[in-house]
Design a binder for these strands. Structure first.
Lengths: 183, 183
DNA sequence: ATGATCCCGAACACAATGTCCGGTAACGCA
DNA sequence: TGCGTTACCGGACATTGTGTTCGGGATCAT
């Protein structure tokens, strides 16, 4: 790719990430982005069809990273002692932490649809094998339930980023299987 | 209140509800609303400060209704205990069903923030006594978890409105306390 | 050096929100 | 019934944000 293209694209991404730390996505305007990235309006729209396309590219890049090493996770982190799903979840949280500064901007307020859409799609694959069949409850509902539990856990984490991935993972598995509530 | 005011307000609400059945809230424009309600633009803005204010009024009215008898019962009967929460949940679902036709328009896509904001606030009060204290997990997280479980259950219901309140309630309580997953 | 490619900026078209105003019709009350 | 008040109307307007177009200028690769 042309060096100029790379620079522009990178500048736009950098500006976008900066702005996400300051305010929520719907409030960020294209004018702000190109102003901070110091590129022309035309340039922006040659790189990204719309403003939402930028967000989608950004989310895609994050998840590309977060879920990428899923298969060879044993190489990077040693979770051999623990059971599969738990290890994977902690692993994902580790990678997610690197982007946690941007999450409030993407998630709070409206328009978390893009991020959550990507995220839940991935999580559905991840948890697909974790839902037992049951006559009482539709499998669809259970999977949805589990996916939402994790997605909302991450949303909560974005508001309480002082916790570590291990702690968050522990919260998730502690709350999920039935502890912590009366009913 | 002036008869003209009532008529206008009602016409706006009616048009708004009709439109919510057809498309999602962010896509509905003020022009569409006043066109279908057959009122002037000025009239709309004397009744509601902004478009979002209309949505808020609408949500407030729904929850006023859904949670209305909740408080009454709480005063007369003692609902602390296992049967209490379950009964309340089913009761809420019954009332919610009357508005379920509008939920997809409000929830799907972006901008579910208003509805969910109101809803979760109410649910937090409802479930406040249902979370056990625990050293392992912050109480805040547990309450949030429970509230989200129910809120997302309702969102799921909006997409599968063929189920009855009892069934949904059963799903919720079956999935919540730990059935349906391996880990 | 030279042609292709990218960038710039300024102007434009478009859509949606929310405001303002002068005239008109409906209301409530005496 | 008459009269002051209140609400409604519609059309024009200001504003903001998105996305497009175009000609001229800089930068790349060979």
């Amino acid at each position: 790719m042309d060096r100029r293209q790379r620079k522009s694209r990178q500048a736009i991404f950098r500006a976008f990430m900066e702005l996400l730390k300051e305010e929520s996505y719907p409030k960020i305007t294209v004018a702000q982005i190109i102003d901070r990235a110091d590129v022309g309006r035309t340039t922006f729209y040659t790189h990204f069809e719309t403003k939402d396309a930028l967000l989608e590219s950004f989310c895609a890049e994050i998840f590309e990273h977060v879920f990428s090493e899923e298969l060879d996770k044993e190489k990077t982190h040693d979770f051999s002692g623990e059971h599969g799903t738990k290890a994977r979840v902690t692993h994902i949280l580790y990678h997610l932490r690197e982007h946690i500064a941007y999450l409030p901007g993407i998630l709070s307020g409206d328009s978390d649809a893009v991020f959550m859409g990507y995220f839940k799609e991935r999580l559905s694959e991840l948890f697909a094998d974790s839902v037992r069949d049951s006559e009482a409850v539709p499998r669809d509902y259970l999977l949805n339930h589990l996916v939402n539990d994790f997605a909302e856990t991450v949303r909560w984490w974005a508001r309480h980023s002082e916790y570590t991935p291990e702690e968050i993972s522990a919260f998730f598995f502690a709350a999920a299987p039935g502890s912590g509530r009366e009913a």
